[in-house]
């Protein structure tokens, strides 16, 4: 093979690998990204039941009911409230009036069935999505945003 052919072979292989990776990444992106909505956005935009989404906000005061592993609570961004159900062990920092993010889907009656509930690792820390959602509703105060984890 001449130098030119060798180089072309290498370039060809490179393009093939890059193409493969791009295809993989794009198809994975299309099928596995999850959109985030605040309770207000769910009420306004309307999200189809069964679509996998993330929601977030503050756990509403006095809304948590537990029965064994089943938990039911409400998440609010100050304007709208969303009912959430979850079966499993809630994270350490799950408390009322605490910012949380949950992943799952809405059921036909508009209740959010979460399969993952995340609370960040510091009592002062607010998930960024939740902070933005709260800011939009004007119930956010800058001094809440200090502190963090790890």
């Amino acid at each position: 093979m001449t130098r030119r052919q060798r180089r072309l072979t290498l370039i060809g292989i490179s393009l093939a690998v890059l193409g493969l990776a791009a295809a993989l990444a794009l198809s994975a992106l299309r099928e596995s990204i999850v959109f985030f909505y605040s309770p207000t956005e769910i009420a306004e935009k309307g999200v189809a039941p069964g679509t996998r989404i993330r929601i977030g906000g503050l756990v509403k005061e006095a809304s948590l009911q537990k029965n064994g592993l089943d938990a039911r609570f409400e998440v609010t961004d100050g304007a709208k409230v969303l009912a959430v159900t979850y079966r499993g062990v809630l994270p350490d920092l799950f408390r009322e009036k605490q910012g949380i993010v949950a992943e799952g889907a809405l059921d036909a009656s508009g209740v959010f069935r979460a399969d993952t509930v995340l609370a960040k690792h510091d009592e002062n820390y607010m998930p960024k999505e939740v902070a933005d959602a709260l800011k939009k509703q004007g119930v956010w105060h800058e001094d809440k945003g200090k502190g963090g984890a790890k």
């Binding site: 990776a21 993989l24 990444a25 198809s27 994975a28 992106l29 099928e31 596995s32 990204i33 999850v34 959109f35 985030f36 909505y37 993330r54 992943e103 999505e129 933005d132």
Partner: peptide, 28 residues
């Protein structure tokens, strides 16, 4: 890098908030 920065870029461009989680990285 794509999976890490894509949510940032998308939020800056469209204000949509997304999360790119383990399924993306496992599949790609």
């Amino acid at each position: 890098l794509t999976g890490t920065l894509y949510p940032l870029a998308l939020e800056a461009l469209t204000a949509d908030k997304i999360s790119v989680g383990p399924p993306f990285f496992n599949r790609s």
